[in-house]
Amino acid sequence: MATSDWGMDWFKKLLPSRIRTDGTGKRVVPEGLWTNCPACKAVLYQAELERNANVCPKCDHHMRIGARRRIDLFLDPEPRTEIGDSVEPVDFLRFKDTKRYKDRLSQAQKATDESDALVVMAGRIQGRPVVTCAFEFEFMGGSMGSVVGEKIARQFERAVAHRRPAIMFCASGGARMQEGVLSLMQMAKTSAARSRLREARVPYLSILLHPTTGGVAASVAMLGDVIIAEPDALIGFAGPRVIEQTIRQQLPPGFQRSEFLLEHGMVDLVVSRTDLKKTIERTLRWFARGRDPSRQTGLVGDVVDIPATD
């Protein structure tokens, strides 16, 4: 019995004190109630982890969350309008590597219940109207093909038309190779759509999550008026493996992580997920104050108040 007692002590130490109970060994634990932090291996109570926006309370590791959950964390529950949800991918090149693109698509659609790797939603952040989008990384690595490009363009065009700030939660490996050069061209398309936001002086905040690389990093992701990264996210143009192979050198510790980018002047802020909403709301509030017509800044015309459900 000595072995199992020792085992329990070790287990108890990892539990947060308020959920530590005596004699847990005999209780039946429902599946999915507990989870392990992939970084510090701590055993965590699932409900508590979710209350903490899936950030490990022990080591602050930011776990990956899906696009809809991300939107739920930031947008007010009501009102919401999904944009571009009728847009679906097409395998126009009939691309086949070790698998057909068509099969990869249906597999990803089944696994994520999304038609492609991006969800766009108009709604409000603490009452402030915004048009937001989030990448679904589980859908082919959040790769940008025609659908993602089209949805981003629609998001930005909507943001311009309704004069509402655009917010993007980026998590993508880059362009979707299975769509050939058309995926590359989505970089130009999304950047052009972004240029209209600039002309209209509608704010665009880009939030970089783990990971943001390749064609997405080298287009819309790095074009925010303010760029905010979650801690320890991998952000860069080339992936670390490619760089290592090219220069045949070991990469320095922390290379291409959020804090590294902050140090090199490439992002404005590194903000924990639990503080992110507050930071976004505050930034938008400041930009809105600047364009208050009563202040006569002469920069922009009237702010039009448009209901979020139109």
Partner: peptide, 26 residues
Amino acid sequence: GAFPGIDAEERGQSEAIARNLLVMAG
């Protein structure tokens, strides 16, 4: 392609490419 190197990343390879796309569009 754009150079995949440590110095290029430090100086913002992504931003430099993205900025040109934006500038050329307008």
